[in-house]
Computed example of a mutant assay.
Amino acid sequence: MTSPIQAATIAALSSDRCCWKEPTLDAGLPHSRRFTRAFRKIARTRARTLKDLQCKARLILLTTDVPDSMEASLARDVLAFTGGRP
């Protein structure tokens, strides 16, 4: 079962791909708006599981300008975490 965060992440990633495939800026505008709506929904929703947190981390890595920033580093750590118990 997919959570709202996971569904919005799938929508954001697919709209980002579609946006870059369009030949003109005007043709990619609906995809860009769809990405923005999905991104805002993900930012508002609280992550309740590790999968939700990893979905948020994927979007952080997708949208970050500086790959060596603290946010990107934390996102990579979250994606590497498997949820093992000691």
Rank of each mutant, 00 (worst) to 15 (best):
S69N: 08
L61K: 11
D65M: 05
R33V: 12
R48K: 13
I42A: 02
F81D: 11
P4M: 13
P23Q: 12
D68I: 06
F39S: 03
S3M: 03
E71Y: 04
A7H: 05
A27H: 11
F39G: 00
A38K: 00
K51T: 09
D77E: 11
V78I: 15
D52V: 02
C55N: 07
S32T: 06
R37Q: 15
R46Q: 05
A12I: 03
T63G: 09
L79S: 02
P30K: 09
S3N: 04
C19Y: 10
S32R: 14
A12T: 07
A75F: 08
V66T: 13
I5D: 02
L53P: 00
T64W: 00
L74A: 10
D77S: 05
A12C: 10
K21G: 08
R76D: 04
T24E: 09
L79V: 02
R33S: 06
T36W: 01
R85N: 08
A80D: 10
L59H: 01
Q54S: 06
A11V: 15
F35W: 09
A43I: 04
S69T: 04
E22C: 15
V78R: 01
L53N: 08
P67E: 12
E71H: 02
D16P: 01
G84H: 15
A47S: 15
R58N: 09
S14L: 12
G84R: 15
R85H: 13
L25K: 10
K21N: 10
T9D: 01
F81V: 01
A43T: 07
P4Q: 10
F81L: 03
A80M: 10
R85K: 14
G84F: 11
R37C: 03
Q6T: 12
V66N: 15
E22S: 15
A72F: 05
R17K: 15
D68A: 14
D26K: 07
L29K: 15
M1A: 14
I5R: 00
A38W: 01
C19Q: 09
R37N: 10
T64C: 12
R48E: 15
T2S: 08
A12E: 09
L50T: 10
I5T: 04
D77M: 13
A43K: 13
R76C: 11
S73L: 12
A75G: 04
T63M: 12
A11N: 08
